[in-house]
């Protein structure tokens, strides 16, 4: 009985992980995320004007 429950839990875990993979693949979601920043219209970015860039702080040797 105890054996059966342990295996059922493990199988449940495997199914959960595979289902998560199906969701990720179907929606194009990357587990590690990305570096984009999202701004809602009239959102918290406030004074930011669309199309502007907040400044380069990226490549400096």
């Amino acid at each position: 009985m105890k054996n059966s429950l342990t295996y059922k839990l493990f199988i449940g875990y495997l199914v959960l992980v595979l289902s998560y993979f199906v969701y990720l693949s179907a929606t194009g979601t990357r587990i590690l995320g990305d570096d984009k920043e999202k701004f809602e219209p009239n959102g918290s970015s406030g004074s930011r004007s669309s199309g502007g860039y907040r400044g380069s702080s990226y490549y400096h040797k």
Partner: peptide, 14 residues
């Protein structure tokens, strides 16, 4: 900067 013209959401990245 990517602007979704349907929702007006904007996305910035480098």
């Amino acid at each position: 900067t990517l602007i979704n013209t349907t929702t007006n959401e904007a996305y910035d990245f480098e």
